[in-house]
Design a protein around this nucleic acid. Sequence first.
DNA 1: GTAGGTCGGTAAATCGTTTTACCGATGCCG
DNA 2: CGGCATCGGTAAAACGATTTACCGACCTAC
Lengths: 350, 350
Amino acid sequence: MPERCQPTDDPPPPAAGRAKISDVARAAGVSPAVVSRLLRGDAALRIREETRLRVLAVAEELRYTPNEVARALRSSAVGILGMAVHDTSNPVYSEILAGAQAEASAAGYALLLADADELARTGRAFEKLVRGNRIDGLLLQRGPGGSDATVAKVVSTRLPLLLVNDRTRGEVGSVGLDDEAATYLATRHLTGLGHTRVAHLHLGMPRGRSAARTRGWRRALEEAGLPEGPQLRGGHTTADGQRAMDRLEPGAATGVVVSNVLAAVGAMSSARERGLRVPGDVSVVAVHDVFFAPHLTPPLTVVRMPLRELGRRSAAALLRQLGGEPAPHEVVDDPPPELVVRGSTGPPDR
Amino acid sequence: MPERCQPTDDPPPPAAGRAKISDVARAAGVSPAVVSRLLRGDAALRIREETRLRVLAVAEELRYTPNEVARALRSSAVGILGMAVHDTSNPVYSEILAGAQAEASAAGYALLLADADELARTGRAFEKLVRGNRIDGLLLQRGPGGSDATVAKVVSTRLPLLLVNDRTRGEVGSVGLDDEAATYLATRHLTGLGHTRVAHLHLGMPRGRSAARTRGWRRALEEAGLPEGPQLRGGHTTADGQRAMDRLEPGAATGVVVSNVLAAVGAMSSARERGLRVPGDVSVVAVHDVFFAPHLTPPLTVVRMPLRELGRRSAAALLRQLGGEPAPHEVVDDPPPELVVRGSTGPPDR
DNA sequence: GTAGGTCGGTAAATCGTTTTACCGATGCCG
DNA sequence: CGGCATCGGTAAAACGATTTACCGACCTAC
């Protein structure tokens, strides 16, 4: 601490409010440039060891924390990733979200949460988020229905964009899961148990994930030498699954592969209400494991996929994209899709 | 559009990148001040109607969107609220989160998601988020265990803070639910069915929510003229509930009030594994409704509380606090706690 | 004729960092 | 003694908006 006794304009050093870089510089007797370059680790900075320590000590003592806003303005990088999700309270999505948050955070980034539906609708929120330099890049989940309008709008702004849980090829990067393998495993599980009429309760989206899942189901049936079963138009909610299952003619299938775990919950409710026993009359297997699946009635058989890892890898991929690498197209299958057999599947009981 | 033909330094107007305020000003033939004041709706701005329209038209044509970062720097308000949550994939929390997001968004704010545990641990993320001017205020959920360390740290930075799902009084604002009413309703439901030995599987936190919930349970038992039942130390997870229920001596209680819906799921698993029928041998009622509760085995009886509304009101309260109002202490009971009877409760079957 | 008022704006400082030049000593070499 | 590195920094211009003064022109009234 310098012990100068000049009563002249010693400006009240950390008078009120937070210390800024100029406060640190003044107290350490250097210029703001040195403080900045030292703290950022500028390799080109030549500095005496003594000075280095002094600046560091002063910064510590004043509890200096750089103003991220000023930093962002100067360097036009805010250190924030956006993530647009359709329904935060969907456990599948919130798992992905948790993974993305963790990865972003580990890289020193923050995660801004946005509602994908609102982003699609109003121009106001969209403008602010996407064109207002609030985020460095956006993780986007395409809507149920595969709404591409938002994607196109975002692309036109040149904001780095990555589609999460998606496997599009092309300009826009994407990180997805092996959806085909998931339904393949699920279907093979049922055929292995002796089911010959296996339905697919799908997502209701013609393309993307839904197509891949349909392929997996179809392939497993072909391999087993079985005819294709009925396709039921489902969706992403419990209610969707319930409605779809309501439409299944009794006897038309003894096993159902459900492309979405929430829809599976609804499907089982429908079955129960119609007096169909699960798995006695109809076996149900779903894609994606969630924490309450073991506690359902009956415990739900699923194909588990690494959702949190998907979130992680998505954030990581977007960050690499920010670093200048070309848009990646990845499939996360490090823990590969895994069948978890519980109580909702069993041999057909005819 | 002005049709000037001077080949002199007409700077490439929207050459590359986004239009900035000076581009709009130049193209409209006014100063940046006018553009800013007009777009911000400065009432003191006197402007000719003709000029007003011209500026507006140019801004529209150039698709001008203010740079939020620059704005934030100048006005030291970033338009972002932070929300620190302990576990994004907990359906109770994600419901609150969804409400907060919606309300913030409606007010023109964005929501930054942070991990409360990480915030408590590392200094790095904390500094950046809380002292780096990244957010205007923080919605914080106190940890399981009621960890106050983070609260104190945040308070010391003078960042506006509001505790969500909490009912502390004092300096720090809070918005909570009527936890006492919830367990009171739940307990009265059981006593009304004829249960005389009613246990409380609590949250494991000595203070705050847990205390209020214990009070509600106790009060209902007193009113029914019944002795206090056993207290089981639970927690916030399925595993916590399972462990707690494992410790309940058979016959010590015919009904259990569980303060947390996830713990209730675990408790029912425990009961099933130990051969206790629900509700035949033991009835279970939980606090908080979640979307899969009707689909559990058996469907779970709960007391529903307005979680999304809690999130909404929390964000609204924090925003008012930013506006200069004193720290609020609110209890959300607009849709008051409501008993939803499903299959996990019934008369004791001795 | 001039004091004052209104109209329709503008100039310039500011927010707090980062970064690109550049600069004055000092030492070294020939 | 002059040239030239090297050392240890510094000055100042960005980044893009906001906002507080203030200003010139024109009108009106006395």
